[in-house]
Design a protein around this nucleic acid. Sequence first.
DNA 1: CTGGGGATGGGGCCC
DNA 2: AGGGCCCCATCCCCA
Length: 450
Amino acid sequence: MEISSHQFHLLQQLNEQRRQDLFCDCNILVEGKVFKAHRNALFASSGYFKMLLSQSSKETSQSTTATFQAFSPDTFTVILDFVYSGKLSLTGQNVIEVMSAASYLQMTDVISVCKTFIKSSLDISEKEKDRYFSLSDKDVSSNGVARSCVYGGGWRAESSPPHSHSSPDPGTCMMGGNTWSNFNYYPASQRNAQQQLSKHEQRQGSVKKSRHLGLQQPSDIPHYKSSKLEDRAAEPAGHPAPPEEQVHIDTEVETPHVGYQYGQGSEGMPRGLAVSQQEHESPHDLARMRFKCPFCSHVVKRKADLKRHLRCHTGERPYPCEACGKRFSRLDHLSSHFRTIHQACKPICRKCKRHVTELTGQVVQEGTRRYRLCNECLAEAGIDSIRIDLEAEAPLEFPQDGDKDSRWHYGEDNRSDVEIVEDGSTDLVIQQVDDSEDEADEKDVKPNIR
DNA sequence: CTGGGGATGGGGCCC
DNA sequence: AGGGCCCCATCCCCA
């Protein structure tokens, strides 16, 4: 006979003991703040702690101290509350950091919920059309109802695959079982985003294979790569294989876990944190690499860089080129594109590659594309037959959705300082452009680029 | 088939 | 935190 409430009460009691600092045998130091917890609870909830504590379990008489600088105390509070209650307090503000921390700590359930939370935010923003997946605080405040939730996936007696904690209730943020690859904000860029993802992962050298909880090995980060440990991962003989249903994890969830937290320690000890009873990690290592991508092994120093990096996973392209409609994930890429493709900024003859000036060359327009040709190449191209294409000079219509108040107008380039040279050929417009004013032109033509 | 160059995208980092 | 620049890798096109 099974009393279902027992599990709940047990966890409740543990949580109470934690609050009262009873029997706590593990201290976790997060940016100077000390958290007390029970090894058993941590061991059972986190693959990271599982490995950590199994290494230090020989000396059970002493309390274990672990130090983290990879996430904030507030974030760890959310994580620890989840460990002791099964409830995850997610908000738009903390979801990325919680997810990053969960990835660090190898808590697949938490990662899964965070992913779902983000996805639901994206779904909402898709409906709003003018909003994008944003990690900023204002994104939350704009819709406080939808972007804040508590995940209460329920207490379970044993660890389980991420989707097992999912709740089907669509009215809350407790959906689960979704993989990130199933979603893309821009349908048009979906294929592209997937390519980017695979490309990125290829570049990162990510291992696409099943991993075993608690036995994940370093492989993705070159600086800390340990072939020795990888070898061991490849031969499970040395490790007792956990039950299949417990350890076979979606690689998309698992892949991010491997990372710099595992060092070249000969016994597979986490290197980036204080593992032993007294030993604290050198904060130097972690302070240098602070933000870890929840989707891949990439680690960046700044939150803003992580935010930018995440776009390569989400496929978000908020910056459309108003000249050709092509979308970019970054403003500087759009800027670069616009300069090279539509403004003919390079003072190089496209044909002979020679340097040209306003005297020795001219700007040629071909559709929305502009480039420079030297006078010789212009003559060779049959400049006599080039005709002016006035339509191409008119401001073009571009998709306005989500253009981030972009106000580039291609036709603005046709200003008084640009002398149109009429010619008789097709599709080409020759302009006399003063190179010295290119810079000023740029500033004029892209007021949204501050 | 191959090498070169342009376009694009991602990361680091400065301002 | 965002903008922007630089550097580098990759892809693709073309000779």
